[in-house]
Amino acid sequence: MLTEYAFWLLSFIAIFSGIATIISKNPVYSVLYLILTFFSIAGHYFLMNAQFLAAVHIIVYAGAIMVLFLYVIMMLNLNQLEIEKRSNILKMLAVASAGLLLVILSGAAHSADALTANPNKVTPAGMVEDLGIALYRHYLLPFELASILFLAAMVGAVYLSKKNLNETQA
């Protein structure tokens, strides 16, 4: 009973803050609403008894990535920058790609079997041991490939920043 109320509350917060993220004019507000969304999603993980996922979600997304987002926005003082007008073709393309994403997501949601919050049923994917076995036994290759992708992205970022540094010094 309690979990059902919690589910509705969290869902409401998640959807509300998700919409608010998009429609806020001030980028700082957008980021803050996005953080709120992440918190409510972490709450959903908790309801599904996936405590590990919830904690990692908060550490990684809310605690690290969004801090950096907020950091950059505050440092650049983006709220004073005008958002430049985008061309109509670009807008249409954006709508089309968003629609495609919606199709994929709804397809995935349709094919998924259990979407109900059930605290009595332990979802094995949420526990540390099971997650570890899943990641390092069954999906070892995709996991390592993903980490190499991240490494490549990191090296790329370092290279780009170094390149700029050399130009300004020269």
Binding site: V28, Q51, A55, I59, G63, V67, L70, Y71, M127, V128
Partner: peptide, 24 residues
């Protein structure tokens, strides 16, 4: 909770927001 340590880390990591929001 069986992820007590992670809970601690996550609470510590979101503590930054208090400072950032206040400062901004």
């Amino acid at each position: 909770i069986n992820i007590g340590l992670l809970y601690l880390l996550s609470v510590v990591s979101i503590g930054v927001y208090g400072v950032m929001i206040g400062g901004w």
